[in-house]
Design a protein around this nucleic acid. Structure first.
Lengths: 112, 112
DNA sequence: GTAACGTATAACCAGATGGTTGTAGATGAA
DNA sequence: TTCATCTACAACCATCTGGTTATACGTTAC
């Protein structure tokens, strides 16, 4: 089970097109923050902040390589996001099922 | 393929614990905004705003029932969120695969 | 050794977000 | 009809967000 604040950070990080693009471009971990920043019409500092948001959400990791900091997407993190969605869906699917059950067996659904 | 701004709204709506809870509680669409609001330590207006965010993201729909407005989670919307995650994962899985391929057949991986 | 590059961080700003209280209009119940 | 309830929205406020420029510090290249 995934804790609330972590899910907050996760979905918040995903709720920005630039950051989602950064995630895609950081798949194989060969690009530095500067190289990543080259792709956008914003300052290096802005991109650096976006990477920081992704990092705090656990979606990417950085590894030093000389003076560069290589960024790599963490597949496990996206799996965590999916799990959070799954848990959401499961809860509410559960409720719907309970209701269907209630409709199917009305005489037995009185105390819930 | 899901358009960017829609995904923004989707993930932003999901990035708040109160709203995720509202989604769960709105599974079977039997609760009004007021009934939903009873569950939280915040004003009705605040909950009303949260519901509006969910609505703009397409995660819930409201249907009038007398003077009440019943809120119901839209399963298709959560499916859209999942699809967005899938597309993200696919892109980057694709990159990783291409890289693995490059490592496996170094002489054939020059033009990509 | 010095210059260039890459990263990190601070200070600042406009606009969005998440909360509040207050008010007003519809609708249903007495 | 009158009153209570539910919804909607406006105005306000503090904080967060996403951008900027400027500056400082390590590391590499020359």
């Amino acid at each position: 089970m995934v804790v609330d604040e972590e899910v907050d950070r996760l979905f918040h990080a995903l709720a920005d097109a630039t950051r989602r693009d950064l995630l895609r471009r950081s798949a194989d971990g060969e690009l530095s923050v500067s190289r990543l920043a080259d792709g956008y019409a914003m300052s290096f500092a802005a991109v650096h902040k976006h990477v920081a948001v992704l990092e705090r959400a656990g979606l990417v990791t950085k590894t030093r390589h000389g003076r560069e900091q290589l960024v790599r997407t963490d597949p496990a993190a996206v799996a965590r996001a999916r799990q959070a969605l799954d848990e959401l869906e499961a809860t509410w699917r559960g409720r719907v099922d309970r209701m269907s059950d209630l409709l199917a067996h009305p005489t037995r659904g009185e105390n819930r």
